[in-house]
Amino acid sequence: MNFKKQLKEGLLTNNPVLSQLLGMCSTMAITTTLFNGIGMGLSVTIILICSNVVISALRKIIPDKIRIAAYIVVIAGFVTMVDLLLKAYVPALSDSLGVFIPLIVVNCIILGRAEAFASKHGVLAAAVDGLTQGIGYTAALVLMCVIRELLGSGTFGKGVLGADGVRILPAQYPALLVILPVGGFLTLGCLIALTQWVNRRLAEKEQEKEAVK
């Protein structure tokens, strides 16, 4: 099944954040609580699916020369919709993500997928690509959030499981540093190193399999 392969690519071998190294601004800036991470991940996933579908449907109409501008307008339209919806229904999330919601417009993941995938494939394939890449992005964000929240404030699920989350480490142990900007760089660096290691392992295993054949 093709979906399974695409899901694996989105989550691991071609993860937008951890392998393609796209959209790092938001990944490092907002991953301080689980609530932020899930909210941002879902918003980007929805926008990614919508913009992929529209761009793929319009791919034969948009002239090649102004395609980037056209893509940006489509993306900006969806971002504005999500921004207004969040302001109306989830104001807490809108406040804590702040300027990073409108900045989804220039998130390289969305423009990158439009250029690399949606402009060359059919509507259905583009929607599936949006979903799997979005899931990969959300997974990377959630992973960052869980690590940073645990080490930085000693809790799990702040904002999702009650306002303060579940306390795991006693209050005197967590290192505040991890939820400050520094922690964002360090955590992402280590996670990318881990992904590279896992991917290399997977590639080596496949080579071994083929050698046996």
């Binding site: 520094v182 760089f185 360090l186 992402l188 190193a193």
Partner: peptide, 22 residues
């Protein structure tokens, strides 16, 4: 270490730079 070469190491260096700006 091989896994850290290139990008991850650059991110960690950027983290240390951010630490000094703190």
């Amino acid at each position: 270490p091989k896994a850290f070469r290139g990008f991850p190491l650059a991110l960690i260096a950027a983290g240390l730079l951010a630490l000094s700006f703190m």
